[in-house]
Design a binder for these strands. Structure first.
Lengths: 199, 199
DNA sequence: GTCTATACGACGATAGAC
DNA sequence: GTCTATCGTCGTATAGAC
């Protein structure tokens, strides 16, 4: 490959990433429907025509981001599963990672976009399918059940526990985007939802 | 007032309410920006022209709903404050009300709209002001502090505790809209975030 | 009070110049 | 590879008929 082409590829990759980052900002703040291509272009500091040079449509940008976000959070869950320790310890580690990721504000955008994708009818069906395929609840519930068997997690419907857990995580992410400096809870406090009392 | 006018007023009020209910459905599912007047009209079973006979604009409908929602949730908090019992008992009663309201699916729509209103840049500034005026966090934090003084609530930043509490409530509401049959947690489980352990 | 028809503006997407 | 100019569509809001 001639040197010219290599340079072009680098430019292409850089621009692509630049657009995705800008899009994450805009989508997170305004939602899929209200986000305008011109907003994204302005945020990225380039013309709106160029956006279409790199992505087929607004939908394609959104879809790309959702996939990325989904992979990210699945990664954390998988890693938690493979760690040493009791189920509760794995959950604790996972919670620390998520709180850290939300608190730092780095990946909270992707988090928010996932929530939008799963809650708004305004997003395309294909995207929703992507999310159903890899549902955090399904992957995390077994961990809860294991913890219950070992007696370190309270006896309650495991699905209910998992849903509650993610509701809290999602709620925190939503809060964070709106109130940048809002205090994040100690991960231990969250884990206390699960832990048996008085033992 | 002639009888004719009275009847007309009744019709007007009924239609107005009908439109607001339909709008709540559509806004909750699609968000302020993505919601189309034609969607609302269809949901309410009348022409889109008639919607404009009753409301000046889409924004006015949204604003009306947000105010209504804000008053609703403030009501619950105020009522909780005026009840007999310890701060923790008040919190527990409040939590029961909220879980009940979310679980029954009746007022969850208004709840969701409040969340959208506070998190999306797509909503008008006036609406956001309304919400800042009557922030649940500000009203609830004193209750938490009182509970800490009485020693029934764990020692941690009260703002942080309050934020976490509402994050969970909001997260549950969001979940509910997307997954109608999702199991709601026992209010006691939520209160356990606050309660001191081993006492 | 309710409807249909239409004006008008905004935005997604494309074409073509540089 | 990047930009500006433009098209076509869709949705808000209005006007006017019934």
């Amino acid at each position: 490959m001639p040197r010219q082409d290599e340079q072009n590829k680098q430019i292409r990759d850089a621009r692509s990433e630049q657009i995705l980052q800008a899009a994450a900002q805009v989508f997170a703040r305004r939602g899929m429907a209200a986000a305008k291509i011109s907003d994204i272009a302005k945020e990225a500091g380039l013309s709106h025509g160029l956006v279409y040079h790199y992505f087929k449509s607004k939908e394609e940008i959104f879809t790309t981001l959702v996939k990325k976000a989904s992979e990210n959070s699945m990664d954390i869950i998988q890693q938690a599963n493979q760690r040493e320790g009791t189920p509760l310890q794995k959950l604790q580690w996972m919670t620390e990672q998520m709180i850290e990721s939300i608190g730092s504000g780095e990946e909270v955008l992707l988090f928010l976009i996932m929530i939008q994708a799963s809650t708004s009818d305004a997003v395309p069906e294909e995207v929703k399918e992507t999310l159903k395929m890899s549902s955090p609840v399904e992957v995390t519930a077994p961990l809860i059940i294991a913890g219950q068997r070992e007696g370190e997690i309270i006896q309650a419907d495991p699905i209910q526990l998992t849903v509650t857990y993610y509701a809290l995580i999602q709620g925190l992410a939503i809060n964070k985007i709106q109130w940048q400096e809002c205090p994040m809870p100690d991960p231990m406090m969250i884990i206390n939802i699960f832990r048996k009392r008085g033992e």
